[in-house]
Simulated scan of single mutants.
Amino acid sequence: MLGGGGMNPRKMKQMMKQMGIDVTELDVEEVVIRTGEEDLVFDAPQVTRMDAQGQETYQIVGEPESVDVGTGGSGEDSGAAEEAAALPEDDIAIVAERAGVPEQDAIEALEAEEGDLAAAIARLE
């Protein structure tokens, strides 16, 4: 940032304020930086926003996890697992029971119908 090695943090803030630089700590759960080859996922990073002369700059401190683009994490199946996790277990059970099909078929129908229970059941009957 501004060199200050060993400088009192309070004095550093005061100097930055005098120069018109406003620093704000943000409460962030996750940051994703998407490139052409990979996603860099920071879980619970420390993020600071600096406003100086109308320009906002963000600083991210943390250890990223690299995720290849198109794999959805650890392979093709993880994408389906994430989508299934997004569907309520009760909805999956209801569709499977009413349509008399295995849960995997119920999940596929719910995904195809964007979570609409009645449409998923109708699709399977």
Rank of each mutant, 00 (worst) to 15 (best):
M12P: 03
A93G: 02
Q53S: 15
Q53N: 15
N8D: 15
V23M: 13
K11S: 10
I60N: 12
R10L: 08
G100W: 04
L110I: 02
A112K: 05
A96D: 00
E108A: 13
E111R: 11
M7C: 05
T57V: 12
V69D: 03
M15R: 10
S66P: 05
A85W: 02
D116F: 01
D27C: 04
A122F: 10
V41R: 12
T57W: 06
Q53M: 14
K17N: 11
Y58I: 11
A86M: 07
D77R: 11
K17R: 14
V31G: 12
I60F: 14
L40A: 05
E103G: 01
L26Y: 03
M15L: 15
E65V: 12
G115V: 01
A96C: 01
V28E: 05
A96E: 01
A122L: 12
A112N: 04
Q18C: 05
G62D: 14
E25P: 08
A93C: 03
Q14R: 10
A96R: 00
P9E: 09
K13G: 09
L117D: 00
P9K: 09
A93T: 12
A85N: 07
L2D: 10
E103T: 02
E76W: 10
V41G: 07
V67H: 05
A120R: 03
E29N: 15
D105F: 02
E97I: 02
G100H: 05
Q14A: 12
D77T: 10
P45V: 09
E125T: 15
I94L: 14
V67C: 03
G100E: 06
D68C: 05
E65G: 06
A81S: 04
M7L: 11
G5L: 11
I107N: 00
E83D: 14
L124H: 08
A119F: 00
A85K: 07
E111V: 09
G36H: 08
T48N: 10
M15P: 05
E125C: 08
E97G: 04
S66R: 15
E29Q: 15
R49M: 13
G62W: 14
A96Y: 01
E38Q: 14
Q104D: 03
E114T: 03
A122H: 08
T48Q: 13
E30C: 09
P9L: 10
P64Q: 08
A93R: 11
M12Y: 06
E89Q: 13
S78K: 12
F42W: 10
S78W: 10
E56Q: 15
G20N: 05
K11G: 07
D22H: 09
G73H: 03
V28C: 07
A85H: 06
A86I: 02
G54P: 08
I60Q: 13
G72S: 04
G79W: 09
M1G: 12
M12T: 07
L110M: 00
T57I: 14
Q104L: 00
S66D: 06
P102T: 02
S78C: 03
M15K: 12
I33F: 15
E29C: 06
I92L: 01
V69R: 15
M15N: 08
R10Y: 08
G4T: 07
G62R: 13
G4I: 08
V95T: 04
E25M: 11
D68A: 13
A119H: 03
